[in-house]
Amino acid sequence: MSEAAMPLWEVFIRARNGLSHKHAGSIHATDAEMALHAARDVYTRRGEGQSIWVVRSSDIVASDPVDKDMMFEPTASKIYRHPTFYEIPDDVGNM
């Protein structure tokens, strides 16, 4: 018989002050405290960490790839949101 699966957690690490937490990988743990320990022992062995978040993988809500066009296509045409859309003479200098 297969052993009961231990919950999966996603690990996010802030590498340095001023940076945001970034996904580092996943680990298995039975509870939040052990998940933090495992994240520390697995993903910060080379001084990579200042702060750790762990989130149960099953608690993450993800967008569906099927909705990709609906979700992300409409913004592609809104080029006026980017600075390069606007023409400013060179002699004005950096703006």
Binding site: M6, I27, H28, A29, M34, H37, A38, D41, V42, R45
Partner: peptide
């Protein structure tokens, strides 16, 4: 007992 603990004990 787990891979995670293997790394913890080695640490």
């Amino acid at each position: 007992p787990t891979l995670e603990e293997d790394l913890a004990l080695a640490n």
